[in-house]
Amino acid sequence: MATTELTVKSLDGPVDPDWCPGCGDFGVLKSIKEAIVELGIAPHEVLIVSGIGCSSNLPGFIHAYGVHSLHGRAVPVATGAALANHALHVIAVGGDGDGYGIGMAHFIHAMRRNLNLTYIVMDNEIYGLTTGQASPTTTEGHKTKSTPRGNVEKPVQPLALALATGATYVARGFSGDQKHLTKLVAGAIAHKGFSLIDVFSPCVTFNKVNTYQFFKERVYKLEDQKGYDASSLMGAMEKALEFGARIPIGLLYSLDKPTYEDTEPVLARGPLVDQPLGLDRKTFEEILAETRDDVALLPRRGRERSRSRKRT
């Protein structure tokens, strides 16, 4: 198995996807496989972490290490794995409910850290697995099972959030243009730092508004725009908020910057998973010696007020 030639076919998982025929997630799965092949990464060096939802079933459908975790927790589980073994290519995947709803806090904070992670959100603007309720990216006015009079909440703008909180590779793809998506995924995996790809991945069963047709009529590629500069944060922000008659796809923003892993001195010694365990006697004695005369009986002033944690 280990010696199989790396092809898209060789990356097939043990079971076939159980998504509805026509689901946008097929295109995302194929793009991930193609990107891995294009980059020549051995599948055992890839760890794909998902949450819960239709799209979060993806790790089961690809020949790579995977964790199919809890709803909303793909990013923190991926974070832990990436810090524990930064030699792995860690990819978090999931849906818009998973990442922008229940997992929103993790999404924001992971980007602040600029961890070397790729996060691919299969954004179908609906909760599909639970049969069609409004999601954080459901457009205003959209009638769903949970919003029978039309959604009144403004949709989350994931790309704008990503730009505002420090992601260093921000892109939008469309699973109806799978070859284009592959390029974005390959770019994201190759990128050092936190990469987000928000992918329009239509739900053919529960979202009759944001269909393939809807996107086909609206999307245009940034790389076709003369003079578009992906190093300009403000320019990217303008494109991130463009969602109407025209919707941009492609790489909005990219920045070279040290990753969180680069700034963690313990990781400079190599992947944590390969480092020795425990303490030698000398270090242990040194640490114990610190305690002999360091008798702070009470919390020192200055941090006192923060001691009692309030939940408001």
Partner: peptide, 15 residues
Amino acid sequence: LAVVNVAIGAGHAGV
């Protein structure tokens, strides 16, 4: 939520 999930992610990766 993040705390325990990153710890589990790290544990899963082998530390």
